[in-house]
């Protein structure tokens, strides 16, 4: 009787562990080299990073979608505007001024920001408009930067500010100004110090494209995307809760916390489900249930213990 023998592969055919672990960056590299994508700086540099904690095992959203479907009103209010209109933006040189209630105020330049221990963080990103992506960020914990400036005991919040450059950002000039500039955001200090909160300086293995908030932006994956303020020039440690841009514009629709919460609808649409960009096809897009805190409840829910999340949306 014939006995079936399992084929045993040659040693040379087995994928090395290094290559296996590196598969995402190989995919990223391949995607990043697609020449069709517009608005992506030719000057994008490769960043060195090591694997970080909290990464999801979900499939990353394509580089094409991540860099061509954005909300960045400084470049226009359409989803394709940031990719189309951010070519004139100059993210280098750059400085990020950190001050307010701190013992050691400091202005960081780009080399210093990219000099932090950079980590890969594959995070879900849930937009307040009920769509989501999975994005391979490169960044460092915001807490690492805060440690350097030593917040005082009186500091309770961090206020963030985006650059104002009407000459480079078309959405900041002209008759119709959708938002008051600068775009401002804020976090409670314990939120800002949470290990999930990072300042991103890159995605898909390279420096941030302009439309994604070059050269440095906030990523707080348990909150709606608009909390992730882009192209940050200023951070101020303050005692009073700052008012963020969307909250000022329409307080009934956008709160200070903006934690992802399927139980609290946006007044004009449900937040119970979301479309995962790139999943399914055009005729059957991938709609899925939205998770509390965007699936990061295990890490962050405890910092909101006792808080009414429906009132503090």
């Amino acid at each position: 009787m014939a006995v079936y023998r399992y084929p045993s592969p040659l040693g040379s055919e087995i994928t090395s562990e290094g290559a296996y672990l590196n598969r995402r960056s190989l995919i990223a590299g391949a995607l990043a080299s697609i020449p069709l994508l517009h608005g992506v700086e030719a000057s994008a540099e490769t960043l060195k990073s090591k694997p970080g904690p909290f990464s999801t095992d979900e499939t990353p959203t394509s580089f094409m979608d991540v860099t061509n479907y954005n909300n960045f009103y400084e470049f226009g209010s359409g989803k394709s505007d940031p990719a189309s209109n951010s070519g004139d933006f100059r993210p280098e040189p750059w400085t990020l001024e950190v001050g307010g209630l701190v013992a050691k105020p400091k202005t960081f330049d780009l080399d210093e920001l990219r000099g932090f221990d950079l980590e890969d963080r594959l995070y879900r990103m849930r937009c307040v408009e009920a769509w989501s992506m999975v994005i391979p960020w490169i960044g460092f914990p915001l807490s690492a930067l805060l440690d350097q400036v030593e917040p005082l005991g009186s500091a309770k919040y961090v206020a963030f500010e985006t650059v104002v450059r009407p000459e480079e950002m078309g959405g900041q000039r002209g008759l119709f100004q959708p938002l008051p500039w600068p775009y401002v955001e804020g976090l409670r200090l314990d939120e800002a110090r949470h290990p999930l909160a990072i300042l991103a300086v890159g995605l898909y293995g390279q420096t941030l494209p302009n439309q994604n908030g070059a050269p440095v932006r906030l990523v707080v994956p348990w909150k709606y995307g608009f909390k992730g303020i882009k192209s940050i020039v200023k951070m101020t440690l303050v005692e009073e809760q700052p008012v963020s841009s969307w909250e000022r514009l329409q307080p009934s629709e956008y709160g200070f916390y903006a934690n992802v919460n399927p139980a609290v609808d946006h007044p004009r649409w449900s937040q119970a489900t979301e479309i995962r960009i790139g999943e399914g096809g055009f005729l059957s897009p991938g709609r899925r249930e939205t998770l509390p805190f965007n699936g990061y409840a295990e890490q962050v829910a405890s910092i909101y213990d006792g808080m009414d999340l429906a009132a503090n949306y």
């Binding site: 094409m64 979608d65 989803k79 769509w131 479309i275 960009i277 055009f282 005729l283």
Partner: peptide, 15 residues
């Protein structure tokens, strides 16, 4: 454009 994947992002919403 949508059916051939040439509308980036939330193609159905854009359509």
């Amino acid at each position: 454009l949508g059916a051939t994947g040439q509308i980036p992002g939330n193609a159905v919403k854009v359509f």
